[in-house]
Design a protein around this nucleic acid. Structure first.
Lengths: 235, 235
DNA sequence: ATTTATTAATGTAAAATGAACATTTATCCC
DNA sequence: GGGATAAATGTTCATTTTACATTAATAAAT
């Protein structure tokens, strides 16, 4: 097969916005950029898409290589392609957004790799247009999480309702009524109550719940409305 | 500034999914592919992104060149990058989705260009992964239109409530209760009633309405819920 | 002029959902 | 045993959503 003649070829990259939740605050996983320019500045995890690789595969490869993380919830966010976004050479980048259970990877990331978690509220300035990518990912996360149960991806297998509530409160930077919140959450039927309690965060202790994985997958697309008055918080 | 050495460069294109509404059905604007392979097969409007051009600019340029259309509502949908999606040579394509008032351009498109409108339900098979792009755009349109007043982009300046309702019914391929529908729509305060009636579609005639542009822009992000039980229809 | 056909416009009541609000319960520590 | 702390839980009111049928305006036919 012939080629398309006369067309300029350009570089093509992926960048990953990785969100985590430490039980109290939303966090963002960042790395030091390894090459010049902007070497050692903070950056999203990124890399070039290889010739025989889909962008999704590239994002997963990059994530695994830089953090050891694999098999997490990740989706395409947006493609950034301003001609001058990378001063070295024109590079179009597809941004992917991922949600991970921070505890499952925390030690591994710190020990084996040079990635670091930052409080989302407290993140350093990033290279190129990565700040813009993070902003969009935050917006998108708020948008989606208002209707779909995606935030469970950030929690460990067992979690308590107060933990879940502070996760939502962190994402929307607000407080919810705990009575209404737990009623809503439980009414979805997505949670399975466990016998044990978490005694670390209170004297009384809070019951653990597990996600009903089957129902979770089935309901993933349905509309849940965990967040009252979404208009206020989204965009 | 140095280049990134050792990295392969890739072709980079945009494709536009253009939706229209003829007063009765949803339509899709397609062109004959001009070059081999698959020459003369039906295709989305597409073209390569030039060296000093953002993808958005490229999408607008392509649209204008192939149809004369400009200044319409268009947004980035998704980036398609499977290594083998274009058999000629690896090409990554950003798909853009646009909504236009079909009547504003109908004659012009047919006269000056070789683009053609197809009933969305009746569209021919498209080249490469363009069918996949259209499917995603349909899903996305249903999703967005359930909450945001974007479908007004498909209507002429003056339109009637029955027209608006058949537009929604077309998009969701269902029927709505006309009493509930008009109450919902009018309660948004987005519509300004006109003195004249449209007498073409009924003996009684239906009052024209115009969109309150100011309120439209302000409310664009808010949640309207025109569509009952969105779960049923989305995805 | 009256009838007929066609589609637009409109209201109400019952059900479901969402929001606001405070007290009791379990446990640890002193 | 008393105090401190956070978890768990229920009720009422307001709002929204749904289901459902009749009347009104006009053009065409007789």
């Amino acid at each position: 097969m012939n080629r398309y003649p006369l067309q300029k070829h350009i570089l093509f990259a992926v960048d990953c916005i990785i969100f985590g939740f430490d039980g109290h605050d939303m966090k963002l996983l960042l790395v030091h950029r390894a090459i010049k320019p902007e070497k050692n500045k903070w950056s999203l995890m990124g890399g070039f898409v290889q010739q025989q690789e889909s962008p999704e595969d590239a994002a997963n490869r990059v994530l695994k290589k830089l953090t050891g993380i694999e098999g997490v919830y990740m989706e395409q966010l947006h493609t950034f392609g301003r001609p001058d976004r990378d001063p070295v050479e024109r590079t179009v980048s597809i941004a992917y957004s991922a949600l991970i259970d921070i505890h499952e990877y925390e030690k591994q990331i710190n020990a084996d790799y040079h990635a670091e978690w930052f409080l989302l509220k407290n993140k350093p300035k990033l290279i190129f247009d990565h700040d813009e990518m993070v902003e969009l990912a935050k917006k998108q996360l708020r948008y989606k999480a208002a209707f779909h149960p995606i935030l469970f991806e950030l929690l460990p297998e067992k979690f308590t309702i107060p933990q879940l509530q502070s996760l939502y409160e962190g994402v929307y930077d607000t407080v919810f009524d705990n009575r209404n919140f737990s009623r809503k959450v439980l009414s979805t039927g997505l949670l399975i109550k466990q016998k044990q309690k978490d005694k670390l965060n209170s004297k009384k202790g809070a019951f653990y719940y597990k996600l009903d994985k089957k129902k979770y997958k089935a309901d993933f697309k349905s509309f849940l409305n965990f967040v009252p008055n979404p208009d206020k918080f989204i965009l």
